[in-house]
């Protein structure tokens, strides 16, 4: 941290978050979309830790741990859902999953 100003960390975190957001919006492969969401969460962790370092307290670290734990729980459920999509469609392409329509 020493030497690297906060704004750099925030910029890096925001760029990673943006990459994740664009990935979710543009990619069609369910696994890649899921990875993009994980990227967004980890970008947030980076921002939190940068803030925690700057402030010199541990609240941000605690929050980051919560996010990591929750992301793990989400990954368990999300991968199970992707797996059952694959069982039905033999594909994890989001464009193939559109039985529900107006």
């Amino acid at each position: 941290m020493s030497g690297i100003p906060l704004s750099w960390w925030l910029t890096l975190g925001t760029v990673l978050f943006g990459v994740g957001t664009i990935g979710v919006l543009t990619r069609r492969n369910a696994l890649v979309v899921f990875m993009s969401i994980e990227l967004m969460l980890n970008a947030v962790n980076l921002i939190l830790l940068a803030f925690a370092r700057q402030r010199g307290d541990e609240h941000g670290h605690v929050l980051a741990f919560f996010i990591i734990a929750v992301a793990a729980a989400e990954a368990a459920v999300g991968l199970a859902i992707i797996l059952s999509v694959f069982r039905h469609k033999r594909s994890v392409n989001l464009d193939d999953v559109r039985a529900l329509k107006h």
């Binding site: 925030l10 947030v44 921002i47 939190l48 803030f51 929050l63 996010i67």
Partner: peptide, 10 residues
Amino acid sequence: LLYGLAFVYG
């Protein structure tokens, strides 16, 4: 939500 939360903390 978390991105907003991180900035609340910041």
